[in-house]
Nucleic acid binder design. Structure first.
Lengths: 278, 278
DNA sequence: TCATACGTTCGGTACAGCCGAACATTCTGG
DNA sequence: CCAGAATGTTCGGCTGTACCGAACGTATGA
C-alpha cells in the first residue's frame, strides 16, 4: 500500500473509518489535480485502490455533489456542494463573518486584495479574501496553512510570540527560500519581527512571491491571545515606498477594529506586554 | 434503519459506500446546525447511528480538517479544509475564476453585491459573490440550488427556455410565495419573463426577500446554451426607480462580456432565437 | 452528595467494503 | 476500417472492518 508521495498515508488507527479516510483523500487528489479533472483510472492509481473501489467512492461523493462528474471529458472535478460547505464553514468561523465588511472597506480604500487569516497554532490560515478593483492578479488560496515566516500575516502573528516560541516554530518548519528576498536565517527574522513589533504592522517585501508585497497586522481575541491577522496584497511597483508607512497604519487601524469587535485589546494596549518580550 | 426526518436517507445502492455516505450526511448536519457547533450526542441522534460510530466518523473527518473539534464548547463545526476545497472547487468551475474580475468591477461600479450563478438543469447555483462597498447586509449563500422563479438570475435563466420547459420546471417546484411580491402564478410568470426577454435582463422586485431587489442577465457558453447568469443585489430604497433600466443595461453588458470570454454569443445575437419561442 | 448527561474505549460479530475478473465502451494509430 | 489499448462498468465471493452495545471515565448541575 505504498504511496508515491511516501507520506504517512493510511494510518488506520482503530478509531477512524478507513473508507471515509480514503474518500477524503480522493477529494484531496481531485483538488490537487488539474482544474479540468481526472479520469477514474488516474484517481485509482493515485489512491492505490482498485478501479471498482474507487468508482464506488467517487460515486458516493458525486451523488452528494462533493464531486462532479463532467462527462464527457476527463471526468471528476470538485463539486458545487463543496462551495456551499466552504461558504458555511467560513460563516461558522466567527471571525470570517465579522470581518467581511471590514475587508470590503479595506480593499476599496487601498485598491488592493484584502485578506484575513486566523491563527492556527502559530500558522496563518487565510479564511476570507476580498479583491480590490483591478487587483485580481494574484493566486491567493484560502483555507490552507501557510508558512509563517514569509507572509505579512504570518510575520505579524509571529511578532506576538516569544523568541523561544518563534525559534521552536522555525525549527519545525525550517526557513525555505521562496524567492531571493525570503529571510532564511532565524536571527535576521527576529530582527525583522522586532521592527514589525515597533511599527505595529509586518511587511512581506517580495519574500513569498517575486514582485508581490503584503502588509499585515494582528488582532486579538477577548482572552488577549492573538486570534489572527488582516493583510493587504499588491504589486510592488504600484506603491511608492514612501507610502508604505501610511498603508501600514491603515492596516493596523483595521486590525484594531477587528479586535474591538472580538472584544480584544487594541494593539497599542498590548504593545507594552509584547515589547517586553525577551 | 428508519430516520427521524423520514426522507430518502440511506439509499444503499450496491455501488456506493455506506460509511462515506454517512460521513457526508454528518457534514451536512453540522452545516445545517447552529453556527457554534453541535455535540457528539446531537450528531449521533440526528444521524441515527450509535455514539461510537458517530465518533469514529467525526474523528476521521476531523483529522483531515473537514470538521473542527471546538473543545471546550458545543463541539463540532465545519473545518477550514472545507474552505480550501470550496475555494478550489470554485476555481475548477471555469466560470468562477473567469468571472471574478468582472464581478469585482461590477460591484465597484454599482456599489451593490454582485454574484454569478451557473445553470444546473434550469436551477441557478451561485458560485461566486463579491460584496460592494457598504452592501454587506445580505445573506447570500453560495453553492446551493436556488428556486428559479423568485430570483433575478433564476428568471433570467428561465427566460431562455421554451414555455413548455418553463411550465415543466414550475410543475416540479411549484411556485411558493416567499414574500407578498412573489409571482405564484405560472401565467403571470410567463408574462414577466417575456418582459425580461425584451429588456435583455430580469428583475426580482422584492420577490425573494422583503425590501431587496436584484437585476440579472444570462450569458451563454460556446455551444450556445445558457451557461448561467450574473446579478446584482441591493436594497430597494437605495435605487430610484428611473435608474432601474440603466442598471439593467449595465448588468446585461457584463453578462455579454462573460459570454465573450466563454466563446458564446452575446444576448443581442441570441435575441431573435429566444424571442421566436412559442 | 448524587444523578444525569456527555465523551471515550473495547470485544465480538454480521455484513459491507474490497478486489479481481469479465464485460461493455470509447479512443488510437496503423 | 479494423486491431489493440485504454477506459468505465458490473458482478461474485471472501475477508476484514465498520458497526453496535455495554462498560468505563469525566464533566455538569441539582
Amino acid at each position: 500500500m505504498q504511496s508515491v508521495s511516501g507520506g504517512d498515508v493510511e494510518v488506520a488507527s482503530r478509531y477512524t473509518v478507513r473508507s471515509v479516510a480514503r474518500a477524503i483523500r480522493l477529494m484531496e487528489i481531485v483538488a490537487d489535480g488539474p482544474p479540468d479533472g481526472q479520469s477514474l483510472s488516474d484517481l485509482a492509481r493515485a489512491l492505490g485502490t482498485s478501479k471498482s473501489t474507487t468508482l464506488a467512492l467517487a460515486r458516493t461523493l458525486a451523488t452528494s455533489g462533493l464531486l462532479r462528474d463532467t462527462r464527457p471529458g476527463p471526468r471528476y472535478t470538485l463539486g458545487t456542494a463543496l462551495i456551499r460547505l466552504g461558504d458555511i464553514a467560513r460563516n461558522q468561523l466567527p471571525i470570517g463573518s465579522l470581518c467581511r465588511p471590514l475587508l470590503v472597506e479595506m480593499a476599496d480604500l487601498t485598491k488592493m486584495t484584502a485578506r484575513v487569516a486566523i491563527c492556527d497554532g502559530g500558522f496563518p490560515v487565510f479564511i476570507e479574501r476580498v479583491d480590490g478593483p483591478g487587483s485580481v492578479r494574484f493566486h491567493t488560496p484560502l483555507g490552507q496553512r501557510e508558512v509563517p515566516y514569509a507572509s505579512a500575516a504570518g510575520k505579524a502573528i509571529l511578532a506576538t510570540m516569544s523568541e523561544a516560541e518563534i525559534r521552536a516554530l522555525c525549527g519545525q518548519t525550517g526557513l525555505q527560500a521562496r524567492t531571493a528576498h525570503t529571510i532564511t536565517d532565524v536571527d535576521s527574522l527576529l530582527d525583522n519581527l522586532a521592527l514589525a513589533r515597533s511599527h505595529g504592522f509586518a511587511v512581506d517585501d517580495e519574500e513569498d512571491a517575486e514582485g508581490i508585497f503584503c502588509v499585515g497586522a494582528t488582532f486579538f481575541g477577548y482572552d488577549g491571545s492573538c486570534a489572527g491577522a488582516v493583510s493587504v496584497t499588491g504589486i510592488k511597483g504600484d506603491l511608492p515606498a514612501w507610502r508604505m508607512n501610511e498603508l501600514g497604519q491603515t492596516v493596523r487601524r483595521y486590525a484594531d477594529r477587528v479586535s474591538e469587535i472580538l472584544g480584544g485589546a487594541r494593539y497599542s494596549d498590548r504593545a507594552q506586554a509584547i515589547e517586553a518580550r525577551p
